[in-house]
Each structure stands twice: as C-alpha cells, then as structure tokens.
C-alpha cells in the first residue's frame, strides 16, 4: 500500500474518497462496534454464530474480523470477487482449514452454541454435523453404492445391510439421483456425468444426516441444465438443512438464497436479505460488484 501511495499521489485522493464514502454509509450499519460490515449480520433463528473470525495463511492475513450469523433452515450465499476469502470462511465452519499447513484461525465460531475451535472439540463429529460439497465433483473411485455408504459406514450409522441400503436409497432420492442410478449402483461413481457426479457428492454428504451443508461453488464445473437441477435441489434441501453456498454467479445467489453476504479482500462488506442486497446495495463496493464493474 505504501509504495502505491508514494508513487501515485493521485490514487491517494481516490482512496480517500472511497474510504469517505464507506464512512458515510456508516449510519446504516446496525452493529457499528462489530467492524465495518454494513447490513444486519443477525439471523432470526441463528444456528451458526461467528465473531471476529480471522484466518492467516502463514504471514498472509486471509480474512479479517468476520462477524456473521447463519440461521436455521436458511440458504445464505457468500459472494465476492476471486480471492476475497469467501471459500476460506466457508472452510472455517467445518474446520477443513485444518488440513492446510500453516493455516491459523482466531475468533469464535459456534454451531448450536458449541465452539467449533475449542481445543476439546473433535473434528470428526463436527464434520458429520457440517457436511460439505466441493467445487469440482469428487466422487471416490468406488461404486456409486460405496460412495454413499462410506460415510454411514465409518460413523457406524447402520447396523445391518438393510439399514445401509435404506440410507443409500434415501440419500440418493433426496439428491434426486435415485431414478437415474438405481439400476447401476455397483458401477463406479466416476463414470457418471458431471452433474450426476455432483449430485452423487451431495447425496454422499446427506447420507450422514448433517445439520449444516456447506457448498463451495457447487455448480462452477457444470453445464446450465445440471446447474438448474442442483439449484432446484438446494431449494428442496432448505426445508431440512442450513445451507451456506459460495458462488460466483449472482443470478444463482439471487435464485437460491434468502440472505447474501458480500466479501471483499478478506473483509465482510455487506450482509442482508438477498432481495435487498441485489436491488438496493448499501455499500459502494457491493454495488460495483453486482453491477459488474469488477469481479
């Protein structure tokens, strides 16, 4: 930042106006003491509460002071330009960041009033409780049946083969894949089409009966038809689960979510009802992003 201001004095003034504008937006910030986020960070019936969450990758301060609640049975979409930290934030919620070497998380994340980053917490039940679907479909190189049955097997959810069959069928049904694959459950999951693979991955996540589902750009590798199917599925799943979805597509965010959070350079800029954020953004950066000036 220093070098920029030294070499280009005119950028300083631009920066200042930018900062001033965001300051002027402050009156609508209902939680002034919580940082620079505009809009309401609260949800009606919060299941997840995050306070002052910071993530560091070695020296890099990846996300800064995030405060956000996620309500029960709501779909919240996290949007923002590439590298803004939305995926990083998502991966904090089920501690997937633990697998990244040199990653450090501070602050407080509570799911159902249990501190996720407590020293005594075991990540295994946490991840059973908070499922995750990834950007690229990643079925195991096993049969469709074994893909779904893997979670229940390791967690000991089924005591008989019949029970396991039951779980596999209901998970595939919930994911809307049952009719397409019921005759070929013993074939490899990697042989399915991209959209089917992603629904298989969703079914796999559902098989352990999670309470929260995190989705990291679940449709970015899919064609429009497959995307539509997944979006429809997300809408159905809302009845039972709490869902947080990271997406690059604003239309998708508008279609599937009730609330939207806009991230920018590791900061949570604005949160609000999806309709509000898209029709009447409070923050200039949000407006610039959704009108397509950058992103």
């Amino acid at each position: 930042m220093n070098t920029v201001t030294q070499s280009k004095p005119e950028s300083v003034s631009r920066m200042k106006t930018l900062i001033n504008k965001s300051m002027s937006a402050k009156p609508v910030n209902f939680q002034g003491e919580m940082g620079a986020t505009v809009g309401s960070i609260h949800a009606d019936n919060p299941r997840i509460t995050c306070r002052n969450v910071n993530v560091f990758y070695a020296e890099n301060h990846a996300i800064q002071d995030i405060n956000l609640d996620i309500g029960t049975n709501e779909v919240i979409s996290l949007i923002g330009p590439s590298g803004c930290g939305k995926s990083t934030f998502l991966r904090c919620l089920n501690r997937m960041n633990d697998t990244v070497e040199g990653c450090r998380v501070s602050g407080e994340i509570k799911i159902d009033d249990v501190d996720v980053y407590s020293k005594h917490l075991d990540v295994v039940p946490l991840r059973a409780q908070v499922g995750m679907v990834f950007q690229k479909p990643n079925p195991f190189p096993k049969s469709i049946y074994d893909n779904i049955a893997y979670g229940p097997k390791i967690h000991g959810l089924a005591s008989t083969k019949a029970e396991l069959d039951q779980i596999v069928e209901s998970s595939l049904r919930k994911a809307g894949l049952w009719d397409e694959v019921k005759d070929r459950l013993d074939q490899p999951g990697t042989g399915l089409s991209g959209g089917q693979q992603q629904r298989l991955c969703i079914a796999r996540t559902l098989s352990v009966e999670p309470e929260v589902i995190l989705m990291d750009e679940p449709c970015s590798a899919l064609d429009p038809i497959a995307t539509a199917k997944i979006e429809q599925l997300i809408d159905e799943l809302r009845q039972r689960y709490t869902i947080a979805i990271v997406t690059h597509s604003m239309q998708q965010a508008a279609r599937v979510s009730q609330r939207t959070a806009y991230f920018h350079l590791g900061k949570l800029i604005e949160v609000g009802k999806t309709s509000d954020v898209f029709t009447n953004p409070l923050h200039e950066l949000t407006q610039d992003y959704i009108t397509g000036r950058f992103g």
Binding site: P125, A128, Q129, H155, G156, L157, E209, P210, E211, R240
Partner: peptide, 22 residues
C-alpha cells in the same frame, strides 16, 4: 421431524469416536 433423527445420528457418531480415535 428430521431433528430428532439427526440427534440420534450425532449420538451414534459420538459413540464410535473413541474407538476410531484409538
């Protein structure tokens, strides 16, 4: 109705955890 189900899921998970950790 899933809520109660899901609780029992978590219980099952917790029950097996000690064995899996060892």
């Amino acid at each position: 109705n899933n809520r109660t189900d899901s609780l029992s899921t978590m219980e099952k998970v917790r029950k097996g955890i000690a064995k899996r950790r060892s």
